[in-house]
Design a protein around this nucleic acid. Structure first.
Lengths: 327, 327
DNA sequence: TTTACTCAGGTAATCGTTTACTTATAATTA
DNA sequence: TAATTATAAGTAAACGATTACCTGAGTAAA
């Protein structure tokens, strides 16, 4: 692979001249040499060494994104939003899957710092990550899950409590009296917030909160299935608010197995509106999060932090109820 | 951020010594200095600058992956397989979404080369990419789609024709006489191969190939929907082989809308076995591709090429029919 | 005593850019 | 004419690691 030095020699100019031309700092370069250099660059298929450039410039035009799992539709959409926005701004993105494991999160945080990424977008598993995050000097924005932390990092979340409130209220208005809640553990922030919204809505409408109707495990299809099975053993339900759409999918599957009709006997509402929510049977009523936008906004905020522009470092996006046929 | 020079000064040793210790080349380092250096490294939270390292070592321990769209479940699973395997081997992965657009593919190919990735894994849209690919000096393996090219790149594909043959044969054995085929355009290699398998199976079983039963558009849910609508206008069908599961989802949706029962009136079989195939209604019978494994194998092959180990550069994985309730 | 070898570390070139300075010439101004 | 300015380059020092080669002390063998 040719280097700038060789290109310079071929063109009979200095490396400085080549560099200036390639970077548009050609105010004081004659058109003749400009053309000649460009020609040789083209002919040789010269590609500048970005690593050398990064070393000198102290920036890599690369950001890292740490998510639990890209195979999860929520995070694949988030990742896509991030990548699209990053690409527009001239950044590449390094993808890391943490499986919600602290040890992997910490490892990736380290790798990304070694690779000198300009910034990191992260969905951190738990509050216990805050030491590691604090130690990290790279600009960072936390997405989806808020972490107890000082204000040095950006945060982009969704109004979970209000979304959950809307969902629960919707079920109540459709006549449900015994509403179950299936979600992830409380140490998962969004899950905890959705639980609050659920409880608040019940109380506001004179329904009482019944622990036997609450099942907290994971944000997975399996948990949805398990949740329904567990709930049905202990109590009666005529509606389920699922902490996310994957849970809703598992829940509906379990209900079908039990020959319980959705929405006639039990109404189900999800959270997220992942892309397949409309294609399951029945099409899922759910609380839509602007997932793709979450990713875009994360990049915008991150780049602002990187460029030391002054911006709002705490964005909360709103949700929207999407009515389909599962309620 | 501290540099190796500062660490060396604090420890009262040379940078060479620090470097050797950090890289395990400490055969000729006394335990005392080793401890002292490690202590200071720990205390200062020193993280070596990977960019500088990469410049000197001429490798980045990073690979790039170019796929049409991570939001597509097929590619998110592929990406996950790649990332997991890469992580195990100490590589990071830069994610690029091409939307099947040549201009984006070429752009990313360039960016990745500038970033000096050690290798590239790619699902290239069309044969027309082969010039750009040939020009690229970085080790590369093509996944999912084969491209007319000399043997300098690795390829990992699936036996599409045989899978399609199995699928079509399965429908025939279930009593279907009028079998439609909905898939992507022919310039998409896997789609073309699946078409061949479909045709071969029909011929082998004495059924004739009817152009009105073939609809080629995209590998999307919408295309599945459009395909069914188009097919129903022109002809009768009692079975559909869908070029992938997304198409099958759209097809089933269209059939439901038309009040045509699946599988009673029309049997549907997909291709891929993406993670949600089992959760749609009815659960989708499909030809499973080892998608995750495709990603893993791609990394293994790529790393072998990077390390100049001699290996088979053309792997074809087998498919497997997964029977569920849509047939 | 001399030679040779092992041990424990240091010196400095190198990777491929960018860019603050410098230089040289030509053009303009006073 | 002299001084200034604009134009068109070139020089070389970083950026932060790695590592081939070098050094000097101690030890063992001849």
């Amino acid at each position: 692979m040719a280097t700038i030095k060789e290109i310079a020699k071929m063109a009979g100019v200095s490396t400085a001249t080549v560099s200036k031309i390639l970077n548009g700092k050609d105010q004081y370069i004659s058109e003749a040499t400009r053309q000649k250099v460009l020609e040789i660059v083209e002919r040789e298929g010269y590609i500048p060494n970005g690593i050398a450039k990064s070393l000198k410039m102290r920036r890599t035009k690369t950001i890292g994104i740490i998510v639990p799992d890209v195979m999860n539709l929520f995070f694949s959409e988030l990742a896509r939003g991030v990548e699209d926005a990053a690409e527009k701004k001239g950044y590449s993105v390094i993808l890391c899957n943490s499986d919600n494991k602290e040890v992997k999160e910490e490892k990736y945080l380290n790798v990304l710092q070694e690779k000198m990424v300009d910034g990191i977008i992260m969905t951190a598993a738990e509050d216990s990550m805050n030491k590691a995050i604090k130690r990290c000097k790279t600009p960072m924005v936390l997405v989806d899950r808020d972490i107890e932390l000082d204000m040095s990092v950006g945060r982009i979340t969704v109004n979970n409590e209000e979304g959950a409130y809307k969902a629960t209220k919707f079920l109540i208005e459709r006549g449900c009296k015994d509403i179950g809640f299936i979600s992830s553990e409380k140490k998962n922030k969004p899950s905890a917030e959705r639980l609050s919204g659920y409880i608040k809505a019940l109380k506001d409408h004179g329904l009482n909160v019944d622990d036997r109707k609450i099942f907290l495990q994971n944000f997975t299809i399996d948990s949805g299935y398990n949740g329904v099975m567990a709930l049905l053993e202990k109590t009666n339900i005529d509606g389920i608010f699922c902490g996310n759409d994957l849970i809703a999918i598992g829940a509906i599957q379990a209900l079908k197995e039990k020959k319980i009709k959705v929405p006639e006997k039990v109404k189900v509402i999800g959270f997220d509106d992942i892309s397949i929510a409309q294609f399951i049977d029945p099409p899922l009523t759910t609380i839509r999060q602007p997932i793709y936008k979450l990713g875009e906004e994360a990049v915008n905020m991150l780049v602002a932090i990187i460029e030391k522009r002054d911006i709002n470092r705490n964005i909360v996006l709103e949700t929207e109820l999407v009515e389909r046929r599962s309620c």
